[in-house]
Design a protein around this nucleic acid. Structure first.
Lengths: 231, 231
DNA sequence: ATGTTTATTATGTCTACACATAAGGAGTCG
DNA sequence: CGACTCCTTATGTGTAGACATAATAAACAT
């Protein structure tokens, strides 16, 4: 091996041995020291390589037990959750935002339960639309906990979407994301190109910050929308 | 600082400074050497910490340019794509598999176009059901390219699902995954607890290996299924 | 036989140092 | 003024060596 053996090369070789070579599912790999010797690199490098391969989902590492090839590689899909604006503009289309409605109300029971709000919590309820080249692309149904974020009461969200305001205001959060299929309701029918009961692809995102509920949003997408990733 | 400063502690402190402390979005961080000095650790450790924080999506690192706090943290959702069996058994329910139908046919045009198959390619078409505690959980509509995988013709898939056979047979693949909402068709109505036209959450997964199409599968889920992740 | 302690071992992480590499910036030259 | 070269600098990655930790396996006691 003439050139320097980088940990990436080692990774590649390991993956190859797993996927095509002698290390089938369930195989117990030799120890790091032995492998490092075979590959002509330091244990540090071998450790890095093995760690990253295991992060890819191929290996299962346990102290003392050793490194074992996963029976079924954990195939994890990564979906970047783009800001709608970026997602639309990436396609070359023109983005436009519109506020449909805004109201400040007492949190309904289902919302209180869902987000863990106190009784009589006040929330800002928004309906927004995101257009791609003039066509409704996404309907945003958002609730913001005004008890935790009183500044939300002063925002009117007529110019910019609440998402952009939120990411700039609330620094970091605990997030729960769900993907689901829902039946189009009256509101969706009115704003998106759907018929009543049509299947709608929805993303629901609940956000907390320091154990306080921040916001719950449901993003309903236009007809035939797909969320796709490759790897 | 009495106890050992592990790279995790350093990470935590860095994240805290980004989310709550002085390092707002866009901040240019001090160099690794300086930070290592401040935190009382080696540059190696600081490097590891910064690398992992940047993998979390908070930091943007470039040689010479330095380490900068991302304007909008890349909110990426990671969905582990579990084998159905594991997903069901994790909930404590009993898993059962059933083959609904199996046929070997010439690939229909839409499939040829979708997967890039040659004309007159033969495919194995399977319909399978995955039960959770006796209730239909997922309907699997799978096409396997028999031209690339002739072994598939000898499998009858009556005992074990094609997924488990495939992961054991085809080593590693290029995958494209889509999430979408579809309207329940006659087949789904028959096997899942759906009415015609009901919204169904579907996962579509196309797989290639060495530029040859391997399989295309659509997984239709039971009513009200959600795919959820937290971070 | 069964439960508890102890030794062993593979991975996890830290340190200090070195060289590689990419990219910004200064200086040079047409 | 613009294009080029070279230097500087921050991150990227490599080495060897050490100690920490978790989990298995063996030895021991009940």
């Amino acid at each position: 091996m003439t050139e320097t053996t980088t940990f990436r090369e080692v990774m590649a070789e390991i993956v190859q041995r797993i996927t095509e070579g002698p290390w089938g599912p369930g195989t117990l790999l030799p120890g790091e020291v032995e492998l490092a010797e075979e590959f002509g690199c330091s244990r540090t490098t071998m450790n890095r390589a093995l760690r990253e391969v295991s992060e890819l989902g191929f290996l299962d590492r346990k102290r003392k037990a050793g490194t074992r090839v996963r029976m079924a590689p954990i195939r994890q899909a990564r979906f970047e959750m783009p800001v709608v604006r970026a997602e639309i503009e990436k396609t070359g289309a023109v983005y436009r935002y519109a506020l449909v409605s805004r109201e400040v109300v007492a949190a309904p029971d289902w919302l209180r339960a869902r987000m863990g709000l106190k009784a009589r919590a006040r929330v800002v309820h928004l309906l927004c639309l995101h257009f791609s080249d003039g066509v409704a692309f996404q309907l945003e149904d958002r609730w913001i906990n005004a008890s935790a974020l009183p500044q939300a009461l002063e925002q009117d969200f007529s110019e910019a979407g609440p998402n952009e305001w939120l990411v700039a205001t609330v620094p970091f959060s605990e997030v729960e994301i769900s993907f689901l299929a829902a039946a189009a309701d009256a509101v969706m029918v009115q704003h998106l190109d759907h018929a009543l009961g049509d299947p709608v692809f929805c993303v629901e995102r609940a956000t907390w910050w320091q154990n306080a509920a921040v916001t719950l949003v449901t993003l309903a997408h236009r007809r035939d929308y797909r969320m796709t990733t490759r790897y």
